[in-house]
Design a binder for these strands. Structure first.
Lengths: 110, 110
DNA sequence: GTCTAATACATAAATCACTTATGTATTGAT
DNA sequence: ATCAATACATAAGTGATTTATGTATTAGAC
């Protein structure tokens, strides 16, 4: 894991983009996918993820569909149309931020 | 300005690296330099900067030298030896973080 | 056949960096 | 003279995230 400080403010961006790239997903699946994509470096905590999902849903960026797998419950999330727009915007904003930080820290990112 | 969320956790890294690159600097000067380097995108607030400087000093990463310019006071900060090491580590950590985020968000940074 | 880890959701209290607000005082510009 | 910029500082409030806790199912190890 990285110093978790840096991760602050990136959770929603990560969730939106991962959902955009992988379509319908449920919470636990998102944590696993992000763990995979980050090579074990980013471990989303449930205490952060679930409230974030609820918030994004309340803002109309996500739709939910609850499915029963045997006796276990899964809540699948998908992006709404505004959600797709937001995903794009958030990623663009992040890239922009990185560019700026590159200038300030005088580092090359590639 | 960017969404300020993303900036969280980067303040110490910025301060340490700017001090490493520009040598002896005082607080206000740091805000101006960062503003310049970031093309006006990153505006450090005093309420964040001064406490951060005090904290870094308390941790032994910075040395201070108070100078009177006429009747105005300036507190110049320089990196200590551990401060230089930290500057390097923090930047490396940030670059690492960016790399990881690039994988998760599937974006190319360059 | 039972115990542990993994799966899967959820919420509440505590933390902590940072914003916002406020304060003091000097200097330069109009 | 007045306002903006320079230059420091601290305290209250905010809010995303961590940590802690809770419930319940399923798969694998021994």
């Amino acid at each position: 894991m990285h110093s978790p400080e840096l991760l602050k403010g990136t959770l929603q961006t990560i969730v939106l983009k991962v959902l955009k790239d992988h379509g319908k997903m449920y919470g636990y699946e998102i944590t696993q996918r992000v763990k995979e994509l980050s090579d074990g470096h980013i471990l989303l905590t449930e205490g952060a993820l679930y409230p974030a999902l609820h918030k994004l849903e309340a803002e109309g960026l996500l739709n939910t569909e609850t499915v029963s797998i045997g006796k276990r419950i899964r809540k699948y999330y998908t992006l709404t149309s505004p959600g797709k727009v937001q995903a794009k915007e958030r990623v663009a904003e992040f890239v922009d931020f990185i560019q700026t930080m590159g200038s300030v820290l005088q580092v090359k990112l590639n």
